[in-house]
Each structure stands twice: as C-alpha cells, then as structure tokens.
Simulated scan of single mutants.
Amino acid sequence: MKLHLKRMPVFTFRAPSVISMLTVAALTISATFLCAAPVRAQTNSPATLECQANNNSNGYALGCEGTTPSGNVALNCQSPNPISSNGGIYVAIAANCSGTFTTGGTTVSNTLVFSIINVDANNGSITGSGGGSDTLAVNNGLSSVSATLQGSSFSLTSSPLTFVAPGGSINVTASVLGIGLVQLATHGETGSVSVTDAPLPIFVINAANIGASASALGLFNANLACGSSVTINLNQPFPIAVPLAICSGS
C-alpha cells in the first residue's frame, strides 16, 4: 500500500488531516498484515550468563555470554578499575559496556556508560547507578529504532529484553523506509522500553506521560500528546503510523 501524497497540493496539508490519513492507513495495514507477521509469545525465563573478568592492556575487562528463549546475549565491559565478583554478581566501576541481544533473528545493540555497573550472571540482569546512559538500537537497513535512557540509575533484563529508567528520561527515535520520523520522550518519571521478538523487534514504551513529535516526507511537523504507552512495530509496512495513531487519539 502506498500513500499517494503527490495528488494533493502541498499547501493544503495540515497536521490533523495528515495524521487522520495516516491513522486510517495504519488501521487498514494492520488488518491486512497482522496475520503475516505473528508475534511469538515472550517468556520470562531467566537468562543465565557465563562471565569472565580479566586484566588486559586497556585496564580491566568483563565478558559475558548467554542464551535466552528469544536468542543470544553478549556483553563486554571495560573499566580502569578492578572488577569484583561475588556469587556470580560482577561489579565494574566507571565502566563502558557494549552488548548485543538477538531477538526474532534481529540484533539489538546495547551501549551503556554508568559510574557503577552490576551484572548478575545468575539471571542475566544488568543494573547501573551513579548516573549515565544506556541505548538500545535496531537498524535493519530500511528501518531503525533507537531508545536512550539517561538518569541516576537504570535496570535491564535480558529475558524479556526490557530496560527501566526510574525517575530519569527516555528518548526514542524511529525512522522507517525514509518516509517519516517519530521522536518520543519521557522526562522526570519512571519509564520503560521493552522489546518483543517477532520477525523484527517490536518496541513498547511505557511512562505516565509521553510527548512526541512527528514528520513525514517533509510535508508536516506535529507535536503530539500521547497516552501512557506507545508501540513501534517494525513488522508493519508503514509502522510510523502506529505511534501517530496512538498519539493523535489520546
């Protein structure tokens, strides 16, 4: 399905009418394609990690690998300070970490920098404190989603893949097929981003209030007031309409 925007003069476009049109398109596309892209049930089984801390030429390193019901997880951290280990819980101070999570055959990258990072190899959870940032991102060449949290602390679970920012902020950017761009933001309240496995990951953003801005084809820009949950579904042919529809209807 294509939206033949060129049939309408540009100067007649207004944000509400465009949003309404995209909303109708979203509903039509959803009815057509939901059966073609089923979402697998996500389990809450813990992800046990195998971790090893050692000293290298750059300081101290921590490497972890494991499996989840959805795929694999890998994490590598670097710190100028010794990394402690106690009962499968590793603590890195002033750490810089990068990781990957495979879900539904797609790789979700993870980049986190926090003053203190704790990795619990027993259940695959990662927590941070002392201030910093953490980013989950997917880029399959045609569509991309990037979710970044900033705050004094955070927590991340590997199965299901979810991160939570207590009292911090979360900013999410989605770009789909070069057609449009949506930016979602939560500030000063607890928010979370969870990733559901499917042929392509589905991002679900939850917070008390979510603000958004959207643009499409350079024809309009709109600031939207959303509800408490927004879903970005990369399995949709035009998934940019999904958050627009949710925001415009709240």
Rank of each mutant, 00 (worst) to 15 (best):
C97N: 03
G105I: 12
L149V: 13
F238M: 10
A208V: 08
F101D: 11
F13M: 12
F11D: 07
G128T: 09
G63R: 14
N55T: 13
A36E: 04
V119I: 14
Y60T: 07
N96D: 14
A174T: 12
L136K: 00
A74H: 04
P166G: 09
S85I: 14
A15R: 03
A241G: 14
N171P: 02
T67K: 10
C226D: 03
A222R: 01
V230P: 01
S192W: 03
A214I: 11
V73R: 00
P237K: 00
I117T: 09
N86H: 07
I116K: 08
V108R: 04
A137T: 04
R14Q: 14
L34K: 05
A198R: 11
R40A: 14
S70T: 05
L142F: 04
N58L: 14
N96E: 13
S159Y: 07
G130V: 07
N58E: 14
A137R: 01
N86Q: 11
I202G: 01
N55C: 06
G71W: 02
Q150H: 07
V145R: 04
E189L: 11
A74R: 07
F220I: 15
T12W: 05
M21V: 15
A241W: 08
S144V: 12
Q150M: 06
L181H: 09
T231D: 02
T157V: 13
L3C: 07
N140V: 06
A36R: 00
V176N: 05
N209Q: 12
N209A: 14
P199H: 04
S250E: 00
C77G: 00
G99R: 04
T28C: 13
L75A: 08
G167P: 00
V18N: 00
A26M: 11
N76M: 09
C97K: 00
L200T: 11
F163R: 01
E189I: 15
V91H: 00
N139A: 08
T100R: 09
S153E: 06
K6M: 07
A225N: 03
T196Y: 14
F13L: 08
E65C: 14
S213N: 07
T100V: 15
N118F: 06
T12R: 08
G59W: 08
V24A: 07
A95F: 02
F154A: 04
V39G: 01
A41E: 12
T135W: 01
T173C: 08
F11N: 00
V193S: 05
T48A: 08
T196F: 14
M1A: 02
T103I: 13
A208N: 08
L62I: 12
A165I: 05
V204M: 07
V18S: 13
V204D: 09
A37Y: 07
L219C: 04
A15P: 15
L181T: 12
D134A: 09
T28R: 05
M8V: 15
I232K: 01
R14N: 06
A15E: 11
S229F: 02
V172G: 03
L112K: 00
K2Q: 05
P199G: 07
C97Q: 07
P160G: 08
A214G: 12
L156T: 02
F33V: 15
N209T: 10
T67G: 11
G88V: 09
V24S: 01
G211N: 04
L142E: 11
A214K: 01
N233E: 12
A222W: 03
S146Y: 03
I83L: 10
C226R: 02
G211H: 04
A61M: 11
A15I: 14
N81L: 15
